[in-house]
């Protein structure tokens, strides 16, 4: 059923009319035109659509808009004003990306990991990041970038 919702994304409240089951992913991409959050699988298995919900990494393809009342969402567009979050800077320093499609999701997962665990071990990183697939195979660079960001 189409209803009116108010969602707080990147510190800004948006009024949205959408089907109650519409996942946040498609609200972001199709309604709000915020396309940094990527569609990869739609079943919560690849992590390309990762955003922060109250500071925790979640898969936006699994979050219906009707469940977002009173929450704060952060997307890749809101992670930093100028692309200078330590994780984003580390991603550039380690030259992580190949095709780059999964990297918004990887960065959002990494930022959430470091927020909750500022000094992760290699194993912490591997376990936390396991939900994010990179088809190009940049995993070793992602790990290095997270380790670098952890020192900042």
């Amino acid at each position: 059923m189409i209803k009116k919702y108010s969602v707080k994304i990147n510190q800004k409240v948006h009024q949205v009319e959408a089907d109650e089951n519409m996942p946040l992913l498609w609200v972001l991409r199709d309604i709000l035109g915020m396309e940094g959050t990527k569609y990869g699988c739609g079943v919560g298995s690849c992590g390309a659509c990762t955003v922060h919900l109250n500071g925790q990494a979640v898969r936006s393809c699994q979050l219906p808009i009707s469940a977002l009342a009173g929450t704060e969402i952060t997307t890749i567009e809101g992670l930093s004003a100028k692309g200078d979050h330590p994780v984003q800077k580390a991603w550039i320093a380690e030259d992580v990306a190949q095709c780059g499609y999964c990297q918004s999701g990887q960065i959002m997962s990494a930022a959430a990991l470091l927020k909750n665990n500022p000094n992760p071990t290699e194993e912490d990183i591997e376990n936390f990041m396991t939900g994010n697939i990179c088809r190009c195979g940049t995993y070793t660079r992602i790990k290095k970038a997270i380790q670098l960001a952890a020192t900042k």
Partner: peptide
């Protein structure tokens, strides 16, 4: 990678 600054900000670079 010259496109990295855009990639890390999730800029709309892709066909999708």
């Amino acid at each position: 990678n010259v496109v990295a600054p855009k990639i890390v900000q999730g800029k709309p670079l892709f066909g999708m």
